[in-house]
Simulated scan of single mutants.
Amino acid sequence: MSITTIRRACIIDDDRLYVSLIKMLINKNKLAQELLIFENGKQAFDYFESALESGNIDVLPQVVLLDLNMPIMDGWEFLEALEPYADKLKACCLKLNVVSSTINPEEMTKARNHDIVNDFITKPISKDAMISAFKA
């Protein structure tokens, strides 16, 4: 299985240990040249909104790993805030993956059925699941 290194990936998660592990996996497997890290949905949304409003979509990541449970703005609120930009995000080939430790089937289904969500990945994320999230 050949893996193409993408230009930019993004982790939106407040768990520093998890973020460190994911960074290590991404770097070790050469999945992305650059990594954006946000501790909550608000920081991430501000970045996305600025890029989308200015038309500077080149700064957006190709792959996003979004946690659901975070302070300030959680993953669901982040997804809701991005709704007005759904068409633009799909056009620029964004793969947004919800990554959560939830075992609630309703939340998993809700995430998978969301308009801009590519997939739901269960924490702790495996190497195979990570590589799959980055495949074109």
Results as ranks from 00 to 15, higher is better:
74 D>K: 00
109 T>F: 05
118 N>A: 03
54 S>L: 12
84 P>G: 06
2 S>W: 09
101 S>A: 14
24 M>E: 14
56 N>H: 11
36 L>S: 10
39 E>I: 09
4 T>W: 02
70 M>C: 03
54 S>K: 15
125 I>Q: 04
39 E>L: 10
13 D>A: 05
74 D>R: 08
52 L>Q: 11
27 N>D: 08
126 S>W: 06
53 E>M: 07
106 E>R: 01
66 L>V: 10
48 F>W: 13
111 A>S: 13
78 F>I: 06
40 N>A: 10
31 L>A: 02
33 Q>R: 14
97 N>T: 03
104 N>E: 11
64 V>G: 02
51 A>T: 07
9 A>H: 03
6 I>H: 04
11 I>R: 02
133 A>W: 00
66 L>W: 00
63 V>W: 00
76 W>Y: 04
131 I>A: 14
40 N>C: 10
135 K>N: 13
50 S>Y: 00
24 M>T: 14
128 D>I: 12
8 R>G: 05
51 A>W: 02
3 I>A: 11
70 M>A: 00
27 N>K: 12
129 A>G: 11
78 F>G: 02
17 L>R: 03
23 K>R: 15
59 V>T: 12
75 G>K: 03
88 K>Q: 15
45 F>S: 04
113 N>M: 13
103 I>S: 08
99 V>W: 06
3 I>N: 12
136 A>I: 14
28 K>T: 14
128 D>P: 09
59 V>L: 03
90 K>W: 02
102 T>Y: 02
114 H>A: 09
38 F>A: 12
82 L>A: 01
55 G>K: 01
38 F>T: 02
67 D>F: 01
121 I>N: 02
133 A>I: 01
65 L>F: 10
108 M>R: 03
107 E>T: 05
16 R>W: 08
50 S>L: 06
56 N>D: 11
68 L>H: 04
132 S>M: 12
108 M>W: 05
66 L>S: 10
78 F>C: 11
33 Q>P: 04
46 D>I: 07
100 S>N: 01
11 I>N: 09
51 A>H: 02
58 D>A: 13
39 E>S: 12
85 Y>S: 04
4 T>L: 14
80 E>A: 13
43 Q>D: 10
79 L>G: 10
61 P>S: 10
61 P>G: 04
49 E>D: 09
80 E>K: 15
12 I>R: 12
100 S>Y: 00
49 E>C: 04
96 L>N: 07
48 F>S: 00
94 L>D: 00
57 I>K: 12
120 F>P: 01
72 I>N: 08
80 E>I: 12
3 I>H: 12
36 L>P: 01
10 C>V: 03
121 I>E: 04
64 V>A: 02
46 D>H: 08
97 N>G: 09
80 E>Y: 05
15 D>H: 14
136 A>H: 14
59 V>S: 14
105 P>M: 03
83 E>S: 15
111 A>R: 03
46 D>L: 11
76 W>P: 05
107 E>W: 01
85 Y>I: 04
77 E>D: 15
32 A>E: 02
6 I>L: 08
127 K>I: 13
99 V>M: 06
130 M>E: 08
49 E>W: 01
80 E>L: 04
47 Y>A: 10
